[in-house]
């Protein structure tokens, strides 16, 4: 795992940017399923995004419930939630 020096907010913003690119490419690939450049870009982005999410979850808490049960503590319910101030 590449550990960056980003703050919580910076890391979240970077994850959002990566997820946004991924989703936009997903919609593009749905109508252009044989665009090899886009396929390659998509796969590279998946790998980068996974690394960023691993780092975020390690430092600041779970993004999905699957990664919320570590250290014998149910971290999923912890504030802030995304709609709260400071939660996104």
């Amino acid at each position: 795992m590449i550990v960056s020096n980003m703050s919580k907010d910076e890391l979240m913003k970077d994850i959002m940017a990566h997820d946004f690119k991924l989703y936009d490419l997903q919609l593009y690939l749905n109508t252009h399923p044989s665009d090899e450049n886009a396929l390659c870009m998509y796969q590279n982005l998946v790998n980068d995004t996974d690394e960023l999410k691993d780092e975020y979850e390690e430092k600041y808490g779970p993004l999905t419930a699957c990664s919320a049960a570590g250290d014998c503590e149910w971290k999923w319910i912890k504030n802030p939630w995304p709609w709260d101030k400071g939660g996104n």
């Binding site: 979240m12 997820d19 946004f20 989703y23 779970p62 993004l63 999905t64 709609w83």
Partner: peptide, 14 residues
């Protein structure tokens, strides 16, 4: 669907 605990785009209204 699976929920991800984040918004798609940041919102911080002051």
């Amino acid at each position: 669907w699976e929920y991800e605990k984040k918004l798609q785009y940041p919102i911080n209204i002051k």
